[in-house]
């Protein structure tokens, strides 16, 4: 018996197996993925998810976030039982909580995208039916169909999933990059630090990166000294140095550059991984969340292929 796998078109032989690509590309109706859903200020840095610590004893060493006049530390996200949650843990909880929805979505996708012979896709929870042609195909085609589906899924999402966030430049290496195998970290490994607040997304720029944007407003030698200073000095020290040399910076740029670094004891300050950061607003978190949802969707479909074929 010769069987072949074909794609598209209305005409195919009884014994052929058709892969309906459009079904494979359909959006799954999954709940929003976990990472950006927390209703509090959140920092995602080197693959770790942090929130503002309510007490200093919980905070990670050498971290500081100053909001208005109050100083806090940062702590990794914890579960209800107080256990530190990696991004992998968050994703696993998400998959577990939505197990039923995910199972249905996988069955529908794999079931609908393969047409031609009965049900090629089998429900692993159901006992095998000997009379079903499915069994006939087992061993002959499933491996082949499975690898083709995997390839097609990867191809489809390769063009849809973006990876356009800037890469880290700061950080003295106190914090190790998390290699937890989570979908987020596999995709965004080495990405710039993020701050998420009230559905807004901020990139964490180091003071050096921030000052660099205003290079042309400085007298060159003074810029060099400030730029170097920004690597290790405190924001208040940098601002003091700028204040002492107001004639070496364009008057219009002066408050813009300085005030975001430090203007008074009411200033914002973020110290993490041996570096001071300046958050820069980049719009809402929606785009990033959509992208993350696509990554999760891809994972669900690929898992579906493994599960049903």
């Amino acid at each position: 018996m010769t069987k072949k796998i074909i794609e598209g078109g209305d005409l195919f032989f009884k014994d052929d197996v058709q892969i309906v690509t459009s079904e494979l590309e359909k959006k799954l109706n999954l709940p929003t993925p976990p990472l950006f859903q927390r209703d509090e200020l959140q920092i995602i840095y080197k693959g770790h998810a942090y929130v503002v610590a309510r007490s200093l004893k919980d905070s990670i060493p050498d971290s500081q976030i100053k909001i208005y006049t109050k100083n806090y530390g940062l702590e990794e996200i914890k579960s209800g039982e107080g256990k530190v949650q990696s991004i992998k843990d968050l994703e696993e909880s998400y998959f577990k909580e939505n197990e039923e929805v995910i199972r249905k979505a996988q069955a529908a996708t794999i079931g609908n995208c393969i047409v031609g012979i009965g049900t090629v896709a089998r429900d692993p929870d159901e006992p095998a039916d000997d009379s079903d042609s499915c069994n006939e195909l087992k061993g002959l085609l499933t491996t082949q169909i499975g690898s083709q589906l995997v390839e097609k899924i990867n191809q489809h999402y390769a063009s849809k999933v973006k990876n356009d966030l800037p890469k880290y430049k700061g950080g003295s290496g106190v914090i190790n990059t998390a290699k937890d195998g989570s979908e987020y970290n596999k995709h965004y490994d080495g990405t710039v630090g993020l701050l998420v607040l009230d559905r807004k997304l901020y990139f964490l720029e180091t003071m050096q990166e921030y000052v660099k944007k205003f290079e042309k407003s400085f007298e060159p030698k003074f810029f060099e000294s400030i730029y170097n200073m920004c690597k290790t000095a405190k924001p208040e020290e940098v601002a003091e140095q700028i204040n002492k040399n107001t004639d070496k910076i364009h008057p219009k740029a002066l408050p813009i550059v300085r005030n975001k670094i430090w203007h008074s004891n009411r200033s914002f300050k973020l110290y993490l991984d041996g570096t001071y950061f300046v958050p820069e607003c980049k719009g809402t978190v929606d785009e990033l969340e959509k992208n993350y949802a696509l990554i999760i969707e891809r994972k669900v479909k690929l898992d579906g292929v493994k599960k049903y074929l």
Binding site: I67, Y68, D198, K200, P255, V257, C281
Partner: peptide, 13 residues
């Protein structure tokens, strides 16, 4: 309005 330049995150809020 999100004042990106020269303003603290909490001032914006």
């Amino acid at each position: 309005l999100e004042q990106v330049i020269g303003m603290n995150i909490h001032s914006n809020t």
